[in-house]
Amino acid sequence: MSEELLVIIQIAGRRCALPALAVRSVIELAAIAPIPRAPAHITGIAALRSQALTVIDCRRALGLAAEEWPTDHRAVVVAQDGHAYALRVDGIEDITSAIGAPGQVPGGFGAEWSRAARGLIETQIGPALLLDPAVLIAGSELARSESEAAA
């Protein structure tokens, strides 16, 4: 557990980590077809070879405005319940190993972040917020309730 490999990413200017075991690959995103009337954090669908990927914008999934941060064209591919998702982030930094187990901070990380975070984790390159991909895929509660109200 202490040697858990992590993929270090930047989301909305913060350093975050995803468990490397959950990450299938890192891809270059090509054409994304937007999905009209889909929840806000779902950017669209993209193709990975013959597979369809659902593209999730992690900034929006955490209830933040995506436009405020630049993004590169790479995305982290994770799978859940047989569906593949591409997580869009500001950037992908590194792969490193964790030191110790994730821990909590008094006062939490803020409502949205706390929901997605498993805790603060120390890594070889410094502290990062360990995120749960499933929560990112599910999206922001706030955004979801908004989209449901609109529908």
């Binding site: 889909a38 929840p39 669908i45 193709a47 013959s50 369809a52 569906h83």
Partner: peptide, 17 residues
């Protein structure tokens, strides 16, 4: 097949390339 969140829109039955 589409991801469940997209299916919930009710507008789409699937995706294709």
């Amino acid at each position: 097949p589409l991801a469940p969140a997209v299916m919930r829109c009710g507008l789409y039955a699937g995706s294709t390339l």
